[in-house]
Structures are given as C-alpha cells and as structure tokens.
Design a protein around this nucleic acid. Structure first.
Length: 641
DNA sequence: GTAGGGTTAG
C-alpha cells in the first residue's frame, strides 16, 4: 500500500479524534477509534503514527485519564512536540486535580526548549492557584512581561485568582483596580477572595457593587453563607433570586446543590421540597441538569434525610439510575440520624455485597456513628476491627472519635480512655470532649477533672468543659467545686451559640429563643406553657435542673446560682415555646416537627416524652446531632444520645 | 486557558 493510502487514512482519523476531544462524542468513541487503529496494526506504522499521534494525544488530554494522556504524549516524536501539546498536557493534569504534576511538566517543557504562550501561562497560574503557591504563581505572572506576551483580561483574571488563593488578596485587589474593564469573571474572583479573607460582610459589599451578576456569582454568595454556618442567609438569597423571575435560570445544578445543603442545615423541608419540585420541572424541559442528576439527587437524599423524611430519601435512593459512594454515604447518614442503626448495617452490607461502590472513610464514620447512636457496641467494635483488615481504610481521628463515643456512652469509659491513649495521633477536641461527656454520663469524676484540664489547655476559649464538669460535681453533691468552676465561666463570660428552635405551621416558620417574648401570640403561648407544666406535674414530672447539659443548652448560666430561676429557665427553653405554639395551633393528632440548632437538654427530653403521651401527639425534634421522635412516652433514641 | 459544588465525628 502506498503513502497515499496512509495519508487519506490520517486525514480521516484526525477530524474524528478531534471531534472526540471537543466532547462532541461520548468518550468511548475516541477510545474505540484508538483501539481500532491499534488492532489493525495501523497505529504502529511510523508514517501514520507521526500524522495522528498528536491528534490522538489531544483526544486523551481532553478525556483523560492523565496517565493515558501522558502515554500518548510520549508517542509524539520529540521534534514534533509543540507549545499547544505541552499546554494540553499541563491542563489535563490540572483538570484531574494534579496541579503539582502540571508544574513539573511546565519545567520539562522549558527544559525541552518549547516556549510558553499566554495559554500555557494561564494554565500555570491556575495550577499555582490550586496549590496556593504564589512562588510559581509570581514566576508565571512575571513571565508574561519577560516574554512580551499579552496580559489580557483572561491572563489578569488567572493572576488575580492565583493571588486571591495564596493569601495575597492585596495583590489581587491591586490588579483588579488597574483593570480597565473588569469582566464578570474578574468580579467573581474578587468576590470569592473577599468572602474567604475578609468575611461575609465584605463579600456582600462586593456582591452589591457588581455591575452584573450571573449564576456563578450567586452560587459563590450562597455557598459562602453555608460555609459560614448561616444557611438561612443562603435561603434569603434564594428569595432574592426568585423575586425577579428572570433570575430563575441562574438556579443551576451547583446552586441547586448548595441550596439543598442550606435546607439540610436549616432543617427547612418546605424550601427543600420546593427546590425538588422545581428541579423535576426544570429537568423536563432544560438540559442544564441532565448531566448532573447524580449530584442533585444525592443532595436531595441528604436534604430529605436531614429534614426528617428518611422515607422520601429512601424512595429517591432506590430509584436512582446511578449512585456513587457519596449517595450511599448520604443515605447511610440519613438513617443514622434517625437512630436506625440496624437499617444502616443492612444497607452497608448491601453496599459491600452489591459491590457497586467501595465504602470509603466517610462511609465508615457514618456506620460507626450509627452503631454509637443505637448502642450497637459489639457491631461497632467489629466494624472498627475490620476497618483496616477488610475495607483497607487507615483509621483516621474521626473513626477514633466515633469509637470513643460508642464505648464511652455504653459505659466502657476505661476502654474508651485506653483507646484515646493508644491513638497514633494527638486526640483533638472532639475526642477528648466526647470522653469527658461519657465521664459526666457515668459519674467518672476524677478522669473528668483530668480531661477538663487537658481540654482547657488546648482550647482555653471554650468554657463548655467547665460547665460540663461543674454539672458533674453538682450531681455528686460537691457544690464547692461546682461553684468554683461556675465562677470561672462567669468571670470569663460565655461565648456560645444561642439556643434557637423553630416550628413551621401552615407554611409559616416561627422562631424562638429561650424565654422569647417577641412572638405576636406570646400571651397565649405562655398560658399554654403553664397548662403544659400543670399536666406534666399531674403525670409525675419533676424538673431535673441538675441534669447534665441543662444549663449548657440555653445559655442560662448567669442565673445558675438560683435554683428556682434555673428551673424557670428550663421551662422556657426554645423547643418548649415551639411545642406550645404547635399544640395550640394545630388539630389534635397532627405531628409536630421542631428543629433546634443545638442539642436538646435532658430535661426537655424527658418533658417531650411525657408531652407526647399526654397530648397524644407525635413530636419530632431535630437537634444538632440527630432526630428524636417522641411517641407515646418514648423517644426513638431510647434515651441514648 | 481564567470564577462556583455534594457525603462524616462530641
């Protein structure tokens, strides 16, 4: 066969491969084309390979994986490796989260004598940004001028992003202010940077000053609220977004996932459902969600699980056409929050046996914490044993934290302590705090005192440990020690999240803090509270003011010396106000759902159990840790939380 | 080639 044949073949292959790189065809087509060439022995014929090796490389660089791209790159004759080839190799590694390898290839490129162009330098800036490496970033920035390359808006944006991500917001601002016509990308880079160093308020200022906004800008703002633990602010932004109907198109899959996460955090089922409905409608006519069904569905599972509709989460989970390890994890943690430990173990077994996805470290955290929440001590111990041996996961501090919690709660405090001391890493606040809590639960005063000292040294600003230990002393009638600790806290002042609860009635969200008197129906609510206490007392309820966490829960520290005030304080905890409103404004038998931002105290917990049976209601409270479903005098957590 | 994202522990 003559050269003409190979030339025509090459001419035919190159556009085919090119169309694969551009994403016009699904990845397998490109791979199949390569396989066909190899199978027919054509790829190894030098005359053809020199023609198509570059096209083949670009196909792999576009589609990945990077290892294949590198192999294909090496097939390009050294003399035929031009700047765009090097650039594609570098960007491929950046896209696959390998920025340091990208920088190494940039160095190889220089050594090979190829000269970078603007695109190469933008890629280098991007790699430096991802590594927060302003050393290589600064070098890239300088190279524009050294090589006389145009420093366009795109180059400037890349440089600003690099500075913003390597703690040089001042440099980013400087470049931004020098720009003649900042693009929306420039604004968004500054917005993201401002949010990350300078805080929500400063970011909000940038956001307000933006001459135009798009879906990315909105998403950045929404995610920042979530990161700052202010999910309600994120949902307010959704309100703003919807105020102008045109903006609805900015609700893409990323903002959808973020907003669903805000609903999960805030426990807002109403908005979550609205988003779900919108998503179903949007997928029926627009494709912007089609490629992201898996992610949005996972976010929906998380939302339903955290808003107390684990049944809806399960239905979605079973219907999903495709699942990944994150979907499994979201489902497992949803079940775990309901205290459905056995269901978690069943689902986990299914995950392992079906082999669809391998469990990862987060899966194991979910499973271990489920065992802890359900008191499945033996199962938890076995699972922890199998962590390395079967699942090939190196135990991280989170796994130790779960085990300490599991053992400590179950009363095996000594075993928990040994585990802490034998840990290969330094125990953190979570681990020590959890052990301290188990000391409080099981009256281990001396160990508790020792732990508190450790904790105070490590985290001097957190006064919760003093409170916990003070309560322990009080519970064992050692009032002097208890009062001393209490004084420490009082003198230092308390810095805690205020306890808040909300209940939704007929689509309206009602918020309460402890002792709140701002609700329009305050008089009726407090009358109802008196009635609740009367009926509780008739049923044999006594206030457990010395109970652990009771005063930690709603910031009633300063009144701690006065027993009576303390008792009063318990009676007006935010969840009780929400309960009173719920009882008086819904029909008998209607389930009441309350969300609380911190842990429910043990006194409110006992009161809620009794209320459920006195008023013949199902009361579901989501606190910081999990769901409590109170029904007929019992709680789904079996008092184990 | 430049801006944004989902799951976990007291």
């Amino acid at each position: 066969m003559g050269d003409a044949f190979f030339d025509s073949l090459a001419r035919c292959c190159r556009p085919l491969l090119r169309s694969c790189s551009l994403g016009d065809t699904p990845p397998p087509h490109g791979y199949q084309l390569h396989a066909a060439l190899v199978k027919n022995g054509l790829f190894f014929l030098s005359s053809i390979s020199s023609n198509i090796s570059s096209a083949l490389f670009h196909m792999y660089a576009a589609l990945g994986p990077p290892a294949s791209a590198l192999r294909a790159f090496e097939e390009i004759p050294v003399v035929a490796r031009f700047t765009p080839d090097w650039t594609a190799l570098i960007s491929c590694h950046i896209r696959h989260a390998l920025p340091s390898r990208a920088i190494l290839f940039f160095r190889s490129m220089l050594r090979a004598g190829a000269s970078p162009d603007e695109v190469t330098l933008i890629a280098l800036l991007s790699a430096s940004a991802r590594l927060s490496d302003n050393f290589s970033g600064y070098a890239a920035h300088l190279l524009f001028f050294k090589l006389g390359l145009p420093f366009t808006a795109a180059s400037c944006n890349a440089a600003m992003d690099m500075y913003a991500k390597s703690s040089r917001m001042d440099e980013a601002w400087k470049l931004f202010k020098e720009m003649k016509e900042p693009t929306i990308v420039s604004w968004t880079i500054i917005l993201t940077g401002a949010l990350r160093w300078e805080g929500l308020r400063s970011g909000q200022e940038v956001f307000d000053r933006m001459p135009q906004r798009n879906d990315v800008a909105w998403t950045v703002m929404i995610s920042a609220c979530i990161e700052a633990g202010r999910p309600r602010d994120a949902l307010s932004l959704l309100g703003e977004l919807l105020f102008d109907g045109v903006h609805l198109r900015w609700l893409n899959h990323v903002s959808m996932c973020s907003l669903l996460s805000a609903c999960s955090q805030a426990g807002d089922l109403t908005v979550g459902r609205w988003l779900h409905t919108h998503f179903i409608k949007a997928t029926s006519f627009a494709d912007n969600y089609k490629d992201h069904l898996l992610k949005v569905n996972t976010a929906l599972i998380d939302m339903y699980g955290k808003c107390g509709r684990v049944d809806n989460a399960l239905t979605l989970f079973e219907r999903m056409a495709e699942r990944n390890v994150v979907s499994w994890n979201a489902m497992l943690s949803g079940l775990s929050m309901q205290g459905m430990g056995l269901r978690v173990l069943h689902l986990f077994t299914r995950m392992v046996t079906e082999g669809e996805e391998q469990p990862d470290d987060i899966t194991m955290v979910s499973v271990l914490s489920a065992c802890s929440r359900s008191g499945l001590v033996e199962e938890g111990r076995n699972m922890f044993q199998e962590l390395g041996s079967i699942y090939k996961i190196t135990p991280k501090i989170e796994h130790f934290a779960c085990m300490v919690d599991l053992l400590g709660r179950a009363g095996c405090v000594d075993e928990a302590e040994s585990l802490v001391r034998a840990m290969p890493m330094q125990p953190n606040e979570v681990v020590l705090g959890s052990l301290l809590a188990s000391c409080a639960l099981h009256g281990k005063l001396e160990l508790g005192r020792k732990l508190m000292q450790e904790l105070v040294q490590l985290y001097p600003d957190n006064t919760e440990y003093h409170v916990l230990l003070s309560n322990m002393f009080a519970a064992s009638q050692r009032h002097t020690e208890a009062d001393d600790l209490r004084m420490v806290v009082k003198n230092r002042g308390i810095q805690k999240t205020p306890g808040m609860s909300f209940i939704e009635i007929n689509g309206i969200v009602h918020w309460f803090t402890a002792g709140d008197k701002t609700h329009p129906q305050t008089t009726e609510i407090y009358t109802m509270l008196v009635e609740i206490v009367r009926r509780l007392k008739l049923a044999g309820y006594t206030i457990d003011a010395a109970s652990q966490n009771s005063r930690v829960a709603d910031n009633y520290m300063e009144n701690g010396d006065e027993r009576e005030e303390r008792e009063q304080a318990l009676l007006v905890h935010s969840e009780r106000l929400a309960l009173a409103l719920g009882l008086m404004s819904t029909k008998p038998g209607v389930t009441l759902r309350i969300v609380k931002n911190i842990r429910i105290c043990s006194d409110c917990h006992s009161a809620m159990k009794l209320c459920a049976s006195i008023f013949e209601r199902e009361i579901i409270i989501r606190d910081r840790n999990r769901f409590h479903c109170f029904k007929a005098g019992l709680c789904s957590c079996s008092d184990f939380w």
